[in-house]
Write a protein that binds this DNA or RNA. Structure first.
Lengths: 225, 225
DNA sequence: TTTTATTTTTAGATTTGTCTAAATTTTAAT
DNA sequence: ATTAAAATTTAGACAAATCTAAAAATAAAA
């Protein structure tokens, strides 16, 4: 079955909103906001998606994906994240630039394309933002991921994401030579201000502030590149 | 300026039909056929594209791209062919499978993406079908390309395209171990039946029929991978 | 528990791209 | 030079996805 880009966007948005804890059913207004559209448009579309069995919807009662809808959502997320990984890893894009492009690429329909891309990229487990990439069967890898601030002294890991994607943050990281895939080791943690001293291979140890340490995500289990 | 996938398809189709020799202006029916749509729809669209200054159109008089329209067309062709090259070269697709996927990918809007892709692929000059890929500025490389049948004895070149894309032909080539990028040398030419004996590195010389020789295209000048 | 405010839905329009059927224009043929 | 055939355009409709404004339902507040 093939769905329009617009429908896929609705399914994806519902999926993401559903993830939020204790967020059983998704509200019309929330969807409208997420999709930069108007509540009336959302109602219209929900009715269409319901007839396609992608979601459960009772008027005024909010919406929930059916298993089928969820399956579709996961496939879209898979595409989105694989393309993001490709853009950063192979085409040298910055983490911050890839979202919008992936937003378009995720609607390319060929399943074979995406599976081949997956293999070409050597089956990455997380995208450049540190979010897990579902495998061919839609299974999400359980990432052993944590912020640098949570790591014990002398432990090491590989940068695989960053939660604060602000320009300032990226600027700082670039300056400190930290990027996706950078292997680092925690040398010292300062309780006073929450700052952390880290060492990157072949470089002098550097100090990062609490803010940075909390927003720099590291994988310490998976061979994520 | 951004145009819908549909509009881009019209522009591309007109561009290709225009290429045909002595084909000054393109006809409504020809366009309808090329786009698998109805003449009435074409008329409607031409009126819209005219107001956007992409083409010259007088009713009943056929249509021609303006310089602006041509520029757009070339950009689309560039995208299409680069993606095809990517699919074959990096994702191991067969020549015959890539067209439809590239047909979708060519509408992804980011110019930066396509320029990065170009660099990543090392600026290929021809797509898997042997058609030239326009460069960043829209300039078509002049390919020194010819059919194997036209090559002098003892000359060599690299397979960069094939005109007969039939399943049978591809089957035969696969069997003979000939693929995109294969380097070959012409050993002998038989006038009787037009067949040619060629040698591929590390292999015994093989004989190909006149038909194959005429449809197997080889680059003997450009470093086309 | 009324009343008020918020959320959601309906009704009716709009835009884009398409279609069929009928009318018009051009081209080809007698 | 007419007439017949082919190509093209117009007119009117339709599906998808969106919108605004108004109505209805639910939730919150007095």
């Amino acid at each position: 079955m093939k769905y329009s880009a617009s429908k896929e966007n609705y399914i994806k948005a519902i999926f993401h909103l559903q993830q939020e804890p204790e967020q059983e059913s998704v509200t019309t207004n929330a969807l409208a906001e997420a999709l930069h559209t108007k509540p009336a448009s959302v109602t219209d579309m929900l009715k269409k998606l319901k007839t396609q069995k992608l979601l459960q919807y009772e008027k005024y009662r909010g919406v929930k994906l059916t298993p089928e809808g969820k399956k579709l959502a996961v496939q879209i997320v898979r595409k989105h994240r694989l393309w993001e990984y490709f853009l950063v890893e192979k085409l040298q894009f910055g983490w911050e630039e890839v979202h919008d492009i992936a937003e378009e690429l995720e609607h390319i329909s060929s399943k074979k394309l995406i599976d081949r891309l997956d293999a070409f990229l050597d089956f990455p487990r997380a995208d450049p933002h540190g979010d897990p990439i579902p495998d061919v069967n839609g299974k999400m890898p359980s990432l052993q991921q944590s912020a640098v601030s949570e790591m014990p002294v002398n432990s090491s890991g590989t940068v695989n994401g960053i939660s604060d994607q602000s320009a300032d943050m990226l600027e700082l990281l670039k300056h400190k030579n930290i990027q996706l895939g950078t292997k680092l080791e925690v040398k010292k943690k300062f309780e006073v201000d929450g700052s952390v001293e880290i060492k990157i291979r072949n470089q002098q140890p550097v100090n990062i502030s609490e803010h940075v340490a909390k927003n720099l995500l590291v994988a310490y289990d998976n061979k994520n590149k």
